[in-house]
Each structure stands twice: as structure tokens, then as C-alpha cells.
Design a binder for these strands. Sequence first.
DNA 1: AAAGTCACTTAATGTAGGTTAAGAAATTAT
DNA 2: ATAATTTCTTAACCTACATTAAGTGACTTT
Lengths: 191, 191
Amino acid sequence: MKPIIQNISKIISLTPEEETLFLSKIETKYFKAKTILLSSGEICKEGYFVNSGLLRSFNINDNIVEHVLSFACEGWWIGDMYSLLSQKRGNLFIEVLEDSEVEVLSKENQEQLYLEIPKLERFFRILIENSLIANQERLMDNLSLTAEERFEKFCKKHPTLVQKVPQKQIASFIGVTPEFFSKMKSKMLRK
Amino acid sequence: MKPIIQNISKIISLTPEEETLFLSKIETKYFKAKTILLSSGEICKEGYFVNSGLLRSFNINDNIVEHVLSFACEGWWIGDMYSLLSQKRGNLFIEVLEDSEVEVLSKENQEQLYLEIPKLERFFRILIENSLIANQERLMDNLSLTAEERFEKFCKKHPTLVQKVPQKQIASFIGVTPEFFSKMKSKMLRK
DNA sequence: AAAGTCACTTAATGTAGGTTAAGAAATTAT
DNA sequence: ATAATTTCTTAACCTACATTAAGTGACTTT
């Protein structure tokens, strides 16, 4: 069974016909590392489900500083929610960090699927609820924890990512500069 | 027409029967300022839609420092998403800041409504999508803007709230101490 | 109206994390 | 393999914001 179907089946159950219909609306694509799937200023027309590999979304501040909004590895969805929904120009980049196999679901097909398989409203509602919860927690963590504590939490929560992701991007995700992150890390090791 | 029905009608259309059914599942309540609707450590059993007045959700760090997650005034929904969804103990408080009139939707009734009016899946999906987008933006702002810039953005986005909410809670929302906020504000006025 | 609490201000001092810069190590490209 | 680019480290110095503390005014409570 395709990972994306497994992913959906964890939350709602699809009939074989619905599965087929769903699969007809997505497209499997392969991307090389460093491919930019979406740039700031563009309108996001599709969402991505990662079969294998690793993507990230980030923005760039004052044309200099990158801030990572999210990573997505196997079994995760990624997109620019703001732009995808509003169909206005967003300010996120979506980049492939490792050679990846990805299911592409266009905005258009997603809307059609909502009509053809109303159950999918439920699936995506729950998917987004979970995303919101994670985001709220991250927000509160940024307000109340030190960089060290945030890093520890990140390690516990995403042990695989810590191995795969370049260190400067973990720094960006938890909200510190690469220089400070490096200093902090070596300080933590010394304990 | 009840504000909560207006709120829903902006996104989906309900038949008169569906409206009646929906209304039968919510309860209008009146709360005095300072009422605590939910405490940290409790399981959140209901969501709130504000007809009038003002609520907030926040957590408390190390039994000392409060961090405001969100405000909700007229026309806004509020709840502890994490606890509401997982039915586990959350760490948020929900407090009434001004005497308020509120529509209460229990978790139980909400689940029933999803079955009886599947369109509501769509409504809440979109509601939560918007909430996620706002959260993501706030997260990125916290990573990339100064306190001053965050405050300016807050003022533009929520001009009514700036008038109503105690200053120390705006400070908490944008992520600084009340002391620093006070200093910052007087510095901004001097310009 | 007095007393107490709470919200806000101001100021001195402290610190987590930023900036700049330069070199070392690791990847990538030729 | 070598050069080129990128990532990581270290260190000196800097700043946005936190902490502590003390004082003022406003709102509650009795």
C-alpha cells in the first residue's frame, strides 16, 4: 500500500474505489536535492507528501537571514498553507534537502477531492488540527524556553532529523544563529 | 441572526433545519470578568465562541511567568486545541477578561454535529486552517522581528484589542516582560 | 475613606544570544 | 586530485531584552 494511503487510513477509511480515485489525483515525482519547489513571491499551487527524502520550508528576512518554518521527512506533508489557501503570493520557499520521492497534490485536485470524497474534509481537518497544535506548542516554547531547552526538545521529538539536517538549519528552526548554536552545542557536550 | 450562525455562514451555508440543529447543540452562557473557564492540568471539554466581551488563553511557566497564547473577542473562537482534541490534560488556562456572552460547544456535541452535519467538517477545517496560518506567521515574526516591530504589527492587526487588553498582557503576547514593554512604549512615543 | 491589591513606570545592573571576523573542516564541482 | 564553495568552530565584542527593586497611580474591597 502506498505510504500516502496508509497516512490517510490512520484517520479515515477509504473504499477501494475512493483509494483509486484519490491516487488518480496525485502525482508521484522525484526531486534532486537543492531543487526549489516554491519561491517567495510565488503562488503555491500544490501540497507535498514525502515518500522518502527530506524537504523544508523557510522564509528569508531582509534578503539575508533564513528562518526554517518546518521540515518534512517520510510520511509528512508540507506546503505554504497561507498561499495555498488564499492563492495569493506567499513568502515561503520550499526546498528539497535530500533526493526525494514526493506525492504532489494540486490545489485544484484537492478541491475536487473534497467534493468527490467528503470524508477527506475530515482527514485534512484532523491533519491541520495536529499541525496547529504542534505550532502552538512551538510558539509557546519560543516564548518560555531557552535555546538549549528548545534544542533538547527538538532532539527528543525528531531524533532522525537531528542526524540528517545541516546544523545551521536546526539552529534556524529553534531560532538562534549558527554561531551561537555551535557555541551552545559544544557547551552542552562539555557537561 | 445569531453571531455564531453568521460566523459559520461566511464559510458554508446551512439549511434552516441544520441551523436549528446546530443551535440546539450549543449553550449561551454569561461569565463575569476573571472567571477561569479552564485551568492547566484539566481536560478541555468545550470550545467557546465569543458573542461579546473578551477571553484569553495562556500558560504559566515554572508557576510564575504567564504567556498569552491568544485573545478572543467578538466573533472569535477559543479553546485548548491540544486538550480538546486529545482529551488529555492540557497546560492552558482560559480566562474571561471582561464580562462576556459566550456560546459553549462541548466536545461531545461537536463530534455529534460532525456526523449529523458533515458540512461542518469543512467549516472547522477552514477555521483551523486560518488559525494555523495566523500561528505560523506569528511564529516567524517571533523569529525575525524585534519586539517593537511585533508590537506595531499587533496594533495594526488588532486595533480594538490594543484598547481593551491590559498592557502587561500585550507584552506577554508579543513575548517581552511588562517592564521592557513599558520602556519600549515610552521610547516609541518619544519619536 | 482607608487599606490593600494590581497595573504601570523608571532605573541600575545582568545575560542570553547576536555580530563580526577569521580559520578549519567538510562537501561539491571541475 | 584540486579548486571552490559551503558548513562549522572559536573568540572578541555588542545589544536587545531580562531581572531586581523601588516608587506612583488606579482600582477593589471593606
